[in-house]
């Protein structure tokens, strides 16, 4: 298991010895500084010279702290001291330290520009004479940050496509399933209210038959726009549950808040005044709404909660459509797992 490989001294063959080490560290595309236990500089490679604007002649045998007019960052000094004292390697991540050393992107024309983003590793080195030295390696983190940003925005775009309904721009069923599971779990764990709205466009099949599918598609888009216009919290989002059925999760909303929102949604869609000649409710397009509100300290589970929302929607249709009906858990109206106490450990 143990894991530090036997340490190998770098050996140069006699032919290429001499100045080869110097050429190697000057070719390296990251900064190398070697200091002794007093902070005196023993090595200052080309990369560091270029990005600091301080040539090796001016740096060697000087103290690191005295080279920079503004001194060194406190965290950098602490790290250096710790490496010398405890002989353990240290990472200064870019995320937490940004730019500890006054190094700049090329060309280093003026010091007013922003410092280079850095990742730093400091490792202890003990010479054969038992002298303690510190090797400071600096890499330019700007590129990796840029790469991360590109990857992030790419994956954000990808994930947006994966959870969006292409026609209406509402979130899709997959998103609903994930979000609902998460929000219901949160409501149960933290004992906070949660409301769920299920709604259905009234006589939508008849609308399609009468006006054609392209018109039906347009109507759905208008309905979603109207629904969105009534939701003001970023957590309240419209999802297309299937066909002409939509679901809206309202985290932290109890029955009163849920009913207010439902009425607003109903009025907004009705207010669109989209003509619907074959509707037996009225002369324009309407929706029926079922709301269910989770009451903390009840033992209803996610399936039963979802069924309750369906039952409320059914009741709204049964009661003449273009209206909202409300249920509070656990009065689900039919046998549901909530009635049996074994569900949902308090955890």
């Amino acid at each position: 298991m143990n894991s530090i490989p036997a340490k190998k001294e770098i050996a140069f063959s006699g032919e290429i010895g001499g100045k080869i080490a110097e050429k190697i560290w000057d070719s390296i595309k990251s900064g190398l500084i070697l200091v002794d236990s007093e902070g005196k500089i023993l090595l200052w490679n080309s990369w560091i010279a270029q990005h600091s604007g301080i040539p090796a002649e001016s740096a060697l045998n000087h103290f690191l702290g005295s080279l920079f007019p503004d001194g060194l960052a406190a965290s950098f000094k602490t790290a250096l001291r710790n490496v010398l004292q405890h002989k353990l390697p240290i990472i200064l991540s870019n995320a937490l330290h940004r730019s500890p050393l006054p190094l700049y992107p090329l060309p280093v024309a003026h010091r007013k520009q922003d410092r280079m983003q850095q990742s730093i590793i400091i490792t202890p080195i003990v010479t054969s004479e038992k002298k303690r030295l510190c090797l400071i390696q600096v890499t330019d983190a700007t590129l990796s940050i840029k790469r991360e940003r590109v990857l992030k925005s790419h994956s954000e775009r990808l994930s947006k496509v994966a959870i969006t309904d292409a026609l209406t721009g509402a979130y899709n069923r997959r998103f609903f399933d994930e979000r609902f599971t998460a929000e219901f779990g949160r409501a149960q764990r933290q004992n906070i209210p949660l409301s769920l709205i299920m709604l259905d466009v009234d006589f939508f099949k008849d609308y399609n038959d009468r006006y054609g599918h392209p018109a039906g598609d347009k109507a759905l888009i208008s309905v979603v726009t109207a629904l969105k216009s009534q939701l003001h919290r970023p957590t309240d989002v419209v999802t297309r549950y299937g066909g002409e059925e939509f679901a809206i999760i309202l985290p932290d909303s109890g029955s009163e808040g849920g009913q207010i929102v439902a009425e607003k949604l109903r009025a907004a869609v009705s207010g669109l005044n989209i003509p619907h000649g074959t509707s037996s409710v009225t002369d324009h397009l309407t929706i029926s709404i079922g709301i269910v509100s989770y009451q903390p300290d009840t033992s209803c589970n996610a399936t039963c909660f979802l069924e309750a929302a369906d039952a409320a929607l059914y009741r709204a249709k049964h009661d003449g459509r273009n209206c909202a009906r409300h249920l509070v858990t656990p009065e689900c109206g039919k046998p549901c797992p909530a009635d049996t106490p074994q569900v949902d450990s308090p955890d």
Binding site: S93, N94, S119
Partner: peptide, 10 residues
């Protein structure tokens, strides 16, 4: 992201 995991390392 990766560069934030460097912070975890730290």
């Amino acid at each position: 992201a990766e560069y934030e995991q460097e912070a975890m390392c730290e």
